[in-house]
Design a protein around this nucleic acid. Structure first.
Length: 276
DNA sequence: AGTTGCCCCTGCGCGC
DNA sequence: TGCGCGCAGGGGCAAC
């Protein structure tokens, strides 16, 4: 079982920046290891490795190849001989050179690292809350965390220690479904409102998964290169000046954390300013 | 200690 | 035609 890493080729240093010993060391320490699985939490994913004599502590999980796809990353398994992707950053030759694991990433917000074993979840992401589709997600912890924060609810939805797996697009969609403005402080929401929002977060993620995700262009495809169709179902994201699908009011766009937020000014009224 | 602003990065599309 | 600018966004981190 598993896939033996025959060799590693780092074509761009940035995606392995979190491996502090450098790209050459990254390649060297992974060569000869065997990938035995695949796990994820939120948008992080990691590939557990079989223990070596040196690394096997005899207890707990072993080392893992950690990955995050950022916004434009892909982890692909390709037969050897498939032409290099334009933004191929790291190549792992597997087995007897028959196939390759490739990390492809245009914008390089994502990356790879070797995570030492010993913990159930790699140390790099121990601070990440479970995502709301995991059984481990703690609803009451989420509700109380939100309700004692003065941060805006959208920011909280994007904060990994609060909840993981929710990005800018799905946050806007869940807030639109909930009739909540993203700048509403968490502390201003009732328990029922937070639970309703959580229900919409789950529904948006489930709906999006069922449609293969949200594909605006060729960057956003699944592991087989296929597009998803959830962009056709978006009610908020990207709809500036278009009528709200619930009340017809023109949708608005505002800058938010170097991104954009889309909302209906009627269905999702802005909170009263407490100071200005 | 909780909260906030901003940086990282590439490619594309737009306006001048 | 070419250049510069803004935008896209996951997530961490320094500074308050």
């Amino acid at each position: 079982m598993g896939a033996l890493i025959e060799s590693v080729e780092v074509l761009h240093p940035r995606p392995v920046r979190r491996h502090l010993a450098g790209p050459a060391d990254f390649a060297s320490v992974l060569t000869g290891r065997t990938i035995v699985g695949a796990r994820r939490r939120g948008k992080y994913l990691w590939l557990p490795l079989a223990p070596t004599d040196a690394s096997d502590s005899g207890q707990g999980p072993g080392d893992a190849l950690m990955a995050h796809l950022g916004m434009s990353g892909q982890l692909l398994v390709q037969p050897a001989g498939v032409p290099d992707e334009r933004h191929l950053r790291v190549r792992f030759r597997l087995d007897r050179g028959d196939r390759e694991l490739r990390f492809v990433d245009q914008r390089m917000f994502g990356g790879l690292s070797l995570s030492p074993g010993g913990a159930e979840v790699p140390a790099e992401i121990a601070h990440i809350a479970p995502d709301p589709l995991e059984a481990a997600f703690d609803e009451s912890a989420f509700v109380s965390r939100v309700r004692r924060s003065h941060s805006g609810i959208k920011r909280l939805l994007l904060t990994q220690t609060v909840i993981s797996g929710v990005g800018n697009i799905y946050a806007d969609e869940a807030l639109w479904r909930s009739g909540l403005h993203g700048e509403r402080p968490g502390s201003q929401l009732t328990r029922a409102q937070v639970l309703e929002l959580l229900g919409h977060v789950r529904a948006v993620m489930t709906d999006a998964l069922a449609q293969g995700g949200t594909s605006f262009d060729a960057l956003y495809v699944n592991v087989n290169g296929e597009s998803g169709y959830f962009d056709r179902s978006l009610n908020a994201y990207g709809r500036e000046d278009e009528p709200c699908k619930r009340c017809g009011t023109p949708m608005r766009r505002v800058a938010f954390m170097n991104r954009s937020s889309y909302f209906c000014p009627a269905c999702q009224p802005a909170p009263r300013r407490t100071r200005s």
